[in-house]
């Protein structure tokens, strides 16, 4: 998980949803926690904090991104993990490195489709992100297309 997604999930209190969708490992590199102001959040116990190896850190430092962003991309790349990332430049680099990615919008939509949250909760969450993080109208409409499976 990257810092931008961490920020978005904190805003909608969405960590528990993430745990329900991914009961396996949810990993945050240490750089994300350092980039993020800890006063805004208490880290849930099911989120694991990972340090990069010296080799990984060396590769991360070649990326022109913030510390948390570059650590998250390298970690996701090496683990073959799905990375939650919202930031445009970070997403572009994911694409170049073939790292699979999504954002909080995707998590919210799937959470509704899997009956983890109600439509009302989905709408409230996406509206919150629209106001706080300027989610565009096109993205809002995409989330609201969700249908229960």
């Amino acid at each position: 998980m990257n810092t931008s997604a961490f920020s978005a999930l904190t805003r909608i209190n969405g960590f528990k949803i993430l745990k329900q969708l991914f009961p396996q490992d949810i990993i945050v590199p240490r750089g994300v926690l350092e980039e993020y102001d800890r006063k805004f959040v208490t880290l849930p116990s099911f989120i694991k904090v990972r340090d990069l190896t010296p080799n990984q850190m060396s590769r991360a430092n070649n990326l022109d991104l913030g510390q948390g962003e570059k650590e998250a991309i390298i970690l996701a790349h090496d683990l073959g993990a799905l990375l939650l990332i919202e930031d445009k430049k970070g997403r572009k680099i994911c694409q170049d490195m073939n790292v699979e990615k999504t954002g909080t919008y995707g998590i919210i939509r799937v959470a509704f489709e899997e009956c983890i949250i109600t439509r009302k909760q989905m709408v409230e969450m996406i509206e919150k992100l629209k106001n706080d993080l300027y989610y565009g109208q096109q993205l809002i409409e995409w989330v609201l297309k969700a249908r229960k499976r």
Binding site: T3, D64, L65, G66, Q67, E69, D87, K88, G90, K92
Partner: peptide, 11 residues
């Protein structure tokens, strides 16, 4: 957006 990341500019 797309040119410099939020994390980088924060740094």
């Amino acid at each position: 957006p797309g040119r410099i990341s939020l994390g980088k500019i924060a740094e």
